[in-house]
């Protein structure tokens, strides 16, 4: 009947929050404890220089591989969200095609060291200078700034899990066939997020701050697409033959 505001009990919201938190922890690629243990491992200057002196296409390929690995975990996360696999196959693909990289950027704050402005990459913590060979300094700076601002919100794992699910279940993506179903699922996830924020006694404005992050994520992803197009215009064969097939499928 077009009503997208489901009546959901507290018990249902608790259940939804628990399932999404569990899905997140099962698919988060690295546990916080693992990352903390590695946090002292920064790239040495000669290692930084070795990344900087890589040919542009080699560094692009390396980053495409790392992004693809992270996206595979996001696909597993999506599959475990209650209701996701009940959506039609078209809409599952639409949501992952549009949202998987956004969730990778959200998850990046777990792997980010705000004090040193470094992110876990290829075995150690890397600053923006490590990615110089990509030729996308402005995008890299924006990605690091985004991670830093996400970190400043100090989200717990359950809050991060629910926000990731909220981002993934965006009902305003183009080409959805059963928009109403996605809207209901996103609404339920937002209520579960709100419920958890209240339970965790978080500040009142946090949900709004998180909503603002959605447009920042979209901007980062469209800039990634632009940079990829520019790269492909110069190196069409490299993308065609050396980039991971899933990456090409999602961003090609």
């Amino acid at each position: 009947n077009g009503d997208t505001s489901p009546t959901v009990s507290m018990a249902e919201l608790d259940h939804q929050a628990q399932i999404i938190s569990k899905s997140h922890l099962e698919t988060c690629q690295y546990l916080r404890e693992e990352l903390q243990q590695m946090s002292w491992q920064n790239f040495l200057q000669d290692e930084v220089e070795s990344y900087q002196s890589k040919p542009r296409e080699v560094m692009w390929q390396l980053c495409a591989v790392k992004i693809t690995e992270a996206i595979q975990y996001v696909v597993e996360f999506a599959k475990r969200i209650d209701g996701f696999m009940d959506l039609c196959q078209n809409d599952q693909i639409v949501l992952l095609k549009a949202g998987s990289l956004e969730v990778v950027f959200v998850r990046m704050c777990r792997m980010f060291d705000s004090q040193n402005n470094t992110v876990y990459f290829d075995g150690k913590f890397a600053g923006p200078d490590v990615f110089k060979a990509l030729g996308c300094d402005d995008l890299i700076t924006s990605v690091f700034d985004f991670a830093k601002s996400m970190c400043s919100l100090h989200l717990s794992e359950d809050e991060l899990a629910l926000f990731s699910a909220f981002v993934l279940l965006s009902a305003d993506r183009s080409w959805l066939q059963e928009k109403l179903q996605v809207e209901k699922l996103q609404q339920k996830t937002q209520l579960a997020l709100q419920h958890v924020l209240q339970k965790n006694q978080r500040e009142d404005g946090l949900l709004n701050k998180l909503r603002c992050k959605v447009s920042a994520l979209r901007s980062l992803c469209s800039r990634h697409t632009e940079k990829l197009s520019a790269f492909r215009a110069v190196y069409p064969d490299i993308v065609g033959t050396h980039f991971p097939p899933l990456y090409k499928e999602l961003f090609g």
Partner: peptide
Amino acid sequence: LKEKHKILHQLLQNSTS
């Protein structure tokens, strides 16, 4: 869309481990 996203479709079909 399914035809253009065979790998993603396959990943979605694989059972969760």
